[in-house]
């Protein structure tokens, strides 16, 4: 089960990240995970939020924003957990575009977000190996 990440185009100038985060926060949305990829001129903000629709509304009309399906995997917050997941993907030749991690509210739990070329294939491979992936409902649930 994939989860929805919001991706936004941000100019690489002072204050743009603040403006975006501030708008989201003011709308009462919790940002669960965040990663920014940047170039000299622009950056791409990737976020997992508690409310996708509210977030899209909160950002101004001129912000380019898109929904991207990503895989979120729950792991034990201990050495070797990420390595194990990456090994599974490697062995089945699933290419990871980018990834970022966050810790959950659950004690001892950690989460990794994986953006892979072929999301169905990625999920199938993980599930075959007994790895649990999260759904949008799961995300909303533990964020509530």
């Amino acid at each position: 089960m994939a989860i929805t990440q919001l991706s936004a185009f941000l100019e690489n100038t002072a204050g743009t990240l603040y403006d975006a985060v501030s708008a989201i926060t003011d709308a009462g949305v919790n940002i669960r995970a965040l990663s920014v990829a940047d170039t000299k001129d622009f950056g791409i903000l990737r976020i997992i939020v508690s409310d996708i629709e509210k977030t899209k509304e909160a950002l101004d009309d001129n912000t380019i924003i898109s929904e991207t399906s990503v895989i979120a995997v729950k792991m034990n917050d201990q050495a070797g957990a990420l390595k194990n997941i990456l090994k599974i993907l490697k062995e089945d030749n699933v290419n990871i575009e980018y990834t970022y991690a966050f810790t959950g509210s659950m004690q001892g739990g950690a989460y990794v977000v994986l953006r892979v070329d072929d999301i169905d294939e990625g999920e199938a491979v993980l599930s075959r190996n007994g790895i649990i992936t999260l759904s949008d409902e799961d995300m909303t649930g533990f964020l509530a």
């Binding site: 185009f9 622009f42 380019i64 898109s66 980018y98």
Partner: peptide
């Protein structure tokens, strides 16, 4: 001004467009 339709969450694709 970057058009919405061409946006990608992947940096590599964005740089290719550039």
């Amino acid at each position: 001004e970057f058009p919405k339709e061409m946006f990608s969450d992947k940096i590599s694709e964005m740089q290719n467009r550039e």
